[in-house]
Write a protein that binds this DNA or RNA. Sequence first.
DNA 1: ATGACTACTTCATTTACGTCA
DNA 2: CCTGACGTAAATGAAGTAGTC
Length: 302
Amino acid sequence: MMADHQDLGLSLSLNFPAAADRNPASLQLNLTPPLVPSCPSFNHPVRTPNWPDSCPTSSDALKVETRSFLKGIDVNRVPTNAVEAEEEAGVSSPNSTISSISGKRSERDLPNENDVVERSSSRGGSDDEDGDNSRKKLRLSKDQSAVLEESFKEHNTLNPKQKLALAKRLGLRPRQVEVWFQNRRARTKLKQTEVDCEFLKRCCENLTEENRRLQKELQELRALKLSPQFYMQMTPPTTLTMCPSCERVAPPPSEKPIDHQHNRPHLTTANQIHHRALPFHPWPTTANQIVQRQMGGLHPRS
DNA sequence: ATGACTACTTCATTTACGTCA
DNA sequence: CCTGACGTAAATGAAGTAGTC
C-alpha cells in the first residue's frame, strides 16, 4: 500500500547528464526540495518556522488514498460541538487538552484521575460511544485526506488559525488536523530519507567502481613502467593536472592550453597564470564535489 | 540584564487500530 | 475465519522558543 517514491511526489532528478550517459537508469534524482512558494514565508505565530529539508512535494499522496476501505464513508464526522469545544479551549497542541484544563505543563506531565477522564472524553468523546478509554482509530475520508493534502502542499505546518479553519471545514477536531500534519511531515521525511539513502548507495557503488578502475589502470601503468623497451620510448611521466579555473584536466605540456569555457586557446601571461594547471587531486573534498565527480566526471560545469 | 516559569510548538518514537492478501 | 504485514491515526515524551514576571 505504501506508495513508492514517485507516488509520494519525491521523484528526484539530479541533473547530471554525464552520469545519465554512464548509467542512464541510475539517477533521476532531484534532491532539491520542490518549490512550495508559501513554505518559507509561512508565518508561524509562536515558533520560528522549522521547515523540514524537504518541503511537501506533490499531490500524489492523493493517489495513495484510493483504497477500498474509504468508499466515501466518513467515519470521522464529529459533531460540530467537538470542534467548537476545542476552539473554546483556544489551543490545540498535542497537550492542549491537558494544558487547557490544568493550565500547567508540570501537571500535564503528571497525569491524574481527572486527566484520564478528560483525555478520554475530549479525545474520543464523540467517538467512544461506549465510554471506555480505549482510543478508536478512525479513518479519514477520501475528501478529508484530499483537502489535508492540498493544504499540506501549501504549507506543511499550520498556525492555530489555519488549523481551526481546516478542522471546521473538515468536521474534524483541530487535534486531528494537527496529528495528521505531524504524521504527514514524518512520512515526507521518511520518504526523503529513503531517497537520500538510495542516492548515497549509488554514489558509493560508483565510487567503488571508479576505484576499481583506477586500481586496474595503476597496475597497468606499473607494468608498463617495468617493461624496459617501452619505458625507453615513453615520454617523461606526466601527472594529471587540473585547471583551477575550469576544473578540466590540463593538456600535456606539449599542447597549447585550451580555454575550455570559450573553446579557444588560453591567453598567455596573466590569463595563463590564472589558468595555471595545478596537480589534480583525485579525492574530492566536499560532498558537492563527490556528487559532481560521481555524476558528471571531471568537468561537471561543462 | 537575567533566570524561573508557563504556554505553546515541533519532532521522534511508540502504540493501537483498520485493511488487505 | 485466521493471521501477519502494512499503513496510519493517535499518544507520549523530550526539547525548543517566546512571553511574562
